[in-house]
Design a binder for these strands. Sequence first.
DNA 1: ACCATAATTTGGTACGACCAAACTTTAGGG
DNA 2: CCCTAAAGTTTGGTCGTACCAAATTATGGT
Lengths: 257, 257
Amino acid sequence: MKRHAPDKQTSAAQLVNQTSTDTTRTGRAADEIVRHIEKKIVSGALPDRSPLPAERDLMTQFGTSRTVVREAITALSNRGLIENRPRFRPIVRKPGYETIIRNADSIVGHLLSENHGVKNLYDTRVFIERALVREAALNAQTADIRRLKSALLANEKSIDDSTLFYETDIAFHGVLYEVPRNPIFPAVHQAYLSWLAPHWRKMPRSPERNLVNFKSHQAIAEAIFERDAEAADEALTRHLHAAWEYVRVTFEPEESD
Amino acid sequence: MKRHAPDKQTSAAQLVNQTSTDTTRTGRAADEIVRHIEKKIVSGALPDRSPLPAERDLMTQFGTSRTVVREAITALSNRGLIENRPRFRPIVRKPGYETIIRNADSIVGHLLSENHGVKNLYDTRVFIERALVREAALNAQTADIRRLKSALLANEKSIDDSTLFYETDIAFHGVLYEVPRNPIFPAVHQAYLSWLAPHWRKMPRSPERNLVNFKSHQAIAEAIFERDAEAADEALTRHLHAAWEYVRVTFEPEESD
DNA sequence: ACCATAATTTGGTACGACCAAACTTTAGGG
DNA sequence: CCCTAAAGTTTGGTCGTACCAAATTATGGT
């Protein structure tokens, strides 16, 4: 009953090494592999969601030790090009705009926790969305208008269900990010959600509160329908500022400007 | 002439292991170390720009093998928390907003090279800057105005020196990103520079071209001085669209919308 | 065909070695 | 006594091997 065959990962390496245009033997052989796999991923040779070859295979394929392969894999993982659940085969992830967001997550975490991190981020959100509603007011196409109306309706219907309201709330704002038809904006929206959400989640919610927010949404939407950029901007600003104040008061019992 | 003392990395590990609240022995021990060092960096226990302890020290300190320490280091490196030049001691890098940019670099590289990557990114820049000039027109403080004037002047003086003009051009736009007094904006500006620059650098420059650009800057600045948001927006839009067209024509000899 | 079980693969971690480059100490020469 | 060159030591990069446990695949019985 031979349970596990001991690794037989000898030979090959050394021999093949002679062939592989060696990176001068001075450090960072992993980078070579990273670049190589990177190319294969973007070129589609390694399809999205497909598993990466086994480490021991890559090892012989690149004529290096598993150590190096392993380093390359963690590097790729950290760059967001592959998903590396603990004991599973790494999964290829073709990078998109969201990849960057996901990637920045850890660092943003630190930045938010210090000084005015959250405030700064939130301010940029307000800044962006103000510009977005202006854009929407001036250039929204009928499809956009339709989406906005539908999102608004869904939002209204869920006033009594705070969980659902939260979702439709997000969806409403999400429509704004789609107006420019630039895939970067939805990604940015996602970023705001994942980075700001933690501070929002624990905020007490209630139908009354939801109603207030819905009315704000309504005001914004109507201003857009009327093609009134100024009004839309104003309504949006008021809405987001109010939301911020609400959260701020909830979290900071004491003073502080 | 004993050249190198052979590594003596025995003992310790196993023993200390009993103490270290072991991550269930199932995968990802490196993460533990990553978190730990991460904390030390943000807390300042490991000052910015200071070298990380030697791998062999960390190894005994955490009671793991060098393998794991090594993985943790590459992870931290990829997350941008430490700088890891090939054969040197890793240097601690306290994360800032620019860290994120630097970090996203590799992925953005891919995204830009496909489809309308550059166009999409550029469009967001136009979008942001339009909002920025509006903001500046409405809320710029005297200090901002002063900076803007000075930047404009420097820009004018360097019309004959394309290299210098390029720099003052950037500086001029940079002032706009400083108006909101939110550190995220300058970081975003940097991002645009590093990601869009490659497409700009090889663009032919000339005093004539510079003059045109300077006049655009002048128009923008004046609109801001006059607190005319609409005019500023319009001037900025025209400026950036023209620049884009210029580059597009330069690069795409053939048609394509 | 279908599921429980055994066998094999594969990722996670450990150990020890060796090299070459980086860093430090030491020994001379001015 | 300072400065430079040589010798010595540390340290990161890579290799090879080994073992475990979880995943995955084969396999055999119902």
